[in-house]
Nucleic acid binder design. Structure first.
Length: 581
RNA sequence: GCAUCCGUAGCUCAGCUGGAUAGAGCACCUGGCUUCGAACCAGGUGGUCGGGGGUUCGAAUCCCUCCGGAUGCGCCA
């Protein structure tokens, strides 16, 4: 068990022995400042208030019941209005790190209850090419999937692609109008989806006959017309190939097996709405079928309205989202459903969840969480666009990232071979883009800035990657094998202690991420760890001749554990670590 | 009009289930390489936490209100 958990238990016992009620929160936290010890118990003051007792006296009483000097807590004191500051036993810290070094899970415990977590992310619209707008959801969702899997949960990825709707009638008509069968099967027309879409749209706007064909295609598609479906399928496949190029470059773990698009729910929509109507949940209003949601009423008491079927009989994305919830709960047996979707759709998500609850399709035992995220802004503080005002293609963005990284790597390390430089640039460029996104608080907008994300200073991927390479280089020089290195760890110096304490907190950080679905928590942790290592590396010589063998081995062990922790964190974030750069 | 989110150092952002003197990075200033990768490190300058009320022993954090910004709001997705 983690050191902090052991102390938490000890604190609970001490609280109880001091006469405090069960379940009183101990308020145990890592200390904000070094002079407050390693950990601090903040819960006494709140408890004293409830019991109308003197907080300092109560703190003294708790202190008396803490196991001090028994190998865990070296010393403790009451401070300020009733804080209890704890200083950990250095031997205990050393032993804890020792255990972590040989633990492939780095202290991360299996969940008390394993969950099946369905994660909806990326979900591009296949009518067009992926653009910057798809970046956040794709990266964030993927990192959270990896984190949950590492924790020990069962993750089911769902790529809810936009593969259905009126625009596909138009795109199919364009295929029919401009391409021979041979060209279609060769995939020539779709080498640039953006161009093809624009061409189809222009055609649609300019030519009424073509527009009729397009609309007719929509009808034929819905009726299951063989030729139309074949062309549609061809288009979807091609477009998915484009998306997968991006996934591959980004190192995103989504595969074809995770694809379950809107079209997969077509057959469910009619019975779904019928059921809502029969059960009186949906009612007719101005020809449409709607659900009134009192639970989302404004302060005047006006209920929120969700439309599940249009007046013309057509369905909306809310309808297929409902069908998807049913599928996820019933077929996928979800305990928890995460949706990585733009913050602007938060009302929509609330409505869909509310209807699903109301209909009993998602019982209260199933968690439904909209993991919303903000917009990526340009330097001007407005949504990120190209100079000419177009949306930025994801593929272009990634290429630029790698090119920029290449220039920087070439400048910083001219001795690299062309091949090494390319490999490193890819890791650094893509890593920088991903990390810039992952390290920001998920819910807010952020400013896209090449310079700061590719900087080797500050909370960036290159800085962390660099920290990793220093350790590999250290081991190379030492002539030791990093992966299998074992030695007795003895924490003495301030910098060693600070590093060791940071190393002990990885599991906690991962748990937090698995709970909050906010990868920036883990990023902050890794940045802190890398900083602690840099300080340690500066202050504590390792391979110098004046260092004795025991100290050298201990410090190498700390370095090895740092490397493993950083790389494990990177793996979870989906960022490549490097041995040199 | 209603709803959601946001306003923290010159800039970009953390911190928000209330805890001690509000933190990073950038920028700026001062130091540190014939010594493990200086792509680094140590230190410094810099903040009425949008304004005002309230709850509390204690508020950036919770409540109310005002100002300012973004986004969304029944038949697109």
């Amino acid at each position: 068990m983690a050191l902090k958990s052991l102390i938490e238990e000890a604190a609970f016992r001490a609280f109880s022995e001091a006469g405090l009620p069960r379940e009183t929160p101990t308020g145990l936290k890592w200390s904000a400042r070094p002079e407050f010890g390693d950990l601090q118990i903040n819960g006494v003051m709140g408890a004293a208030k409830q019991l109308k007792q003197n907080p300092r006296e109560l703190a003294e009483k708790v202190l008396q019941n803490l196991p001090i000097g028994e190998g865990l807590i070296a010393k403790a004191e009451v401070a300020g209005p009733g804080f209890i500051n704890l200083h950990l036993d250095s031997q205990a810290i050393s032993e804890d790190c020792q255990k972590l070094l040989s633990d492939p899970r780095l202290g991360v415990e299996q969940p008390t209850k394993q969950q099946r977590v369905v994660v909806d992310y990326s979900s591009p619209n296949l009518a067009k090419e992926m653009h910057v707008g798809h970046l956040r959801g794709t990266i964030l969702g993927d990192a959270v999937c990896r984190a949950l899997e590492f924790k020990g949960h069962k993750v089911v990825r769902q790529n809810h692609i936009g593969d259905w709707g009126t625009q596909f009638g138009m795109l199919i008509a364009e295929l029919q109008a401009t391409q021979t069968q041979e060209q279609i099967s060769a995939g020539i027309a779709l080498s640039d989806l953006e161009v093809f879409y624009r061409q189809a749209k222009e055609h649609f706007d300019a030519d009424p006959e073509f527009a009729d064909l397009a609309r007719n295609n929509v009808v034929k598609l819905q009726a299951g017309d063989g030729e139309c479906l074949a062309l549609w399928q061809h288009f979807i496949d091609e477009s998915l190939n484009h998306a997968e190029d991006n996934y591959h470059k980004l190192g995103v773990s989504l595969t074809r097996e995770d694809v379950r698009g809107e079209s997969a729910y077509n057959a469910d929509l009619e019975p779904l709405v019928s059921e809502l109507i029969e059960r009186g949940i949906a009612v007719e209003d101005q020809g449409a079928q709607v659900v009134y949601l009192e639970e989302l009423a404004d302060k005047e008491g006006n209920p929120s309205v969700a439309i599940v079927q249009k007046a013309d009989g057509g369905y909306l994305y809310a309808t297929s989202d409902l069908a998807a919830i049913r599928y996820r709960v019933n077929e996928l047996q979800a305990d928890r459903c995460l949706y990585f979707i733009d913050a602007r759709q938060s009302l929509h998500m609330k409505q869909v969840y509310a209807v699903a609850r109301k209909a009993g399709w998602a019982p209260e035992s199933v968690q439904l969480e909209h993991c919303s995220y903000g917009t990526i802004m340009g330097e001007d503080g407005k949504p990120f666009k190209t100079r000419s005002g177009d949306t930025v293609k994801l593929a272009d963005l990634l290429n630029e990232a790698v090119e920029r990284a290449n220039e920087i790597v070439a400048e910083k390390n001219p001795s690299l071979s062309q091949q090494d430089r390319d490999t490193i640039s890819l890791a650094v460029g893509i890593g920088a883009v991903k990390y810039a996104d992952l390290s920001k608080a998920r819910t807010t907008d952020y400013r896209f800035d090449w310079e700061s994300m590719l900087s080797f200073d500050g909370n960036t991927a290159p800085y962390l990657q660099y920290a990793g390479t220093r350790i590999h280089s250290l081991f190379e020089k030492a002539g030791e094998e990093l992966a299998s290195f074992e030695a007795n760890i003895g924490v003495e110096q301030t910098a060693e202690r600070a590093l060791a304490l940071s190393l002990m907190r990885f599991a906690e950080s991962l748990d937090q991420l698995a709970e909050s679905a906010m990868p920036h928590d883990l990023c902050s942790y890794l940045f802190d760890l890398a900083g602690k290592f840099a300080t340690f590396y500066e202050a504590c010589p390792i391979l110098k001749s004046e260092v004795d063998a025991t100290t050298r081995a201990s410090r190498l062990a700390l370095a090895a554990l740092t490397s493993k922790t950083l790389e494990c964190g990177f793996e979870i974030l989906g960022i490549q670590s490097l041995k040199r750069m």
